[in-house]
Amino acid sequence: MQNPVLLFSFMALTIFCGLYPEKNSDITSILHKNAPLKNGDLIFQTSQSSQSQAIQLATKSQYSHCGIIYQEGEKYYVFEAIQPVKNTPLEQWIARGKAGKYVVKRLKNAAQVLTPSALRKMKQVGDGFKGKNYDLTFEWSDDKIYCSELIWKVYQRGTGLEIGKLDKLSNFDLSAEAVKKKMKERYGDRVPLNETVISPAAVFESELLVTVKSN
């Protein structure tokens, strides 16, 4: 006769393992559930980098990093401007953010705009930035590039759409001590207040986007 305690323990273990699959393998499936991810989706997080707090304070937003989602085969990647510009597996990208929190946004008319040819053009534009250094001084040139600038330029040059309103550095709130310290570190006494910039907050708040996922 089988031991009922051992039998129950085996059944419980089987059920538990079925309910809780391997952690690294289920992040994408959870993200994909109900509202499938699509090529060209934008994803936002609170970065844990040294400059994140300064960006949040200056832009009055909790979001300090962002990228573009692309699918390759069965895997999802985030095309992002870090050091250097590259594709990062989606699971790694999410895990790198504060508390694993994220928001995914999409063009309201993505089905009409993000055609196969438009996506090819966007990837072609993006390929021109791959491997470039991260722009620590947020200059509006293609020599180096930062996260929201990458999104803005890929979309603008690939589809003609401007995702987020361009601004001047002088229009951000530069009064917080953390911001002043970071500005001093990056620019010394020559802060380029007239520099054109696009912040993660401006992209996030674009009226062209709608939120499709968040946690």
Rank of each mutant, 00 (worst) to 15 (best):
E72L: 07
A99T: 02
Q48E: 15
F79Q: 09
G97N: 07
E80K: 01
S64Y: 08
V104L: 04
W93R: 04
S50M: 11
Q45P: 10
E74A: 09
A58K: 12
A95G: 04
E80G: 02
E91R: 08
Q48A: 12
E72I: 08
I82R: 14
S50I: 13
Y77E: 06
Y77D: 07
P89Q: 06
Q71M: 03
K101Q: 13
E74P: 01
Y102V: 00
P84L: 09
T46A: 15
A95T: 06
W93M: 01
I94R: 09
I55Q: 13
E72V: 08
Q83T: 13
T46P: 01
T59W: 11
E72S: 10
Q71S: 06
A99D: 11
Q48W: 06
E80C: 08
I82A: 12
G67K: 11
K75Q: 09
V85S: 10
S49R: 12
I94F: 05
A95P: 00
V78D: 08
I55V: 15
E91N: 10
P84K: 11
S52N: 14
L57S: 14
L90V: 07
A95D: 06
I69K: 07
Q83C: 07
I68K: 10
G100Y: 09
G97S: 05
Q83W: 09
Y70L: 08
V78Q: 07
K60L: 10
L57Y: 15
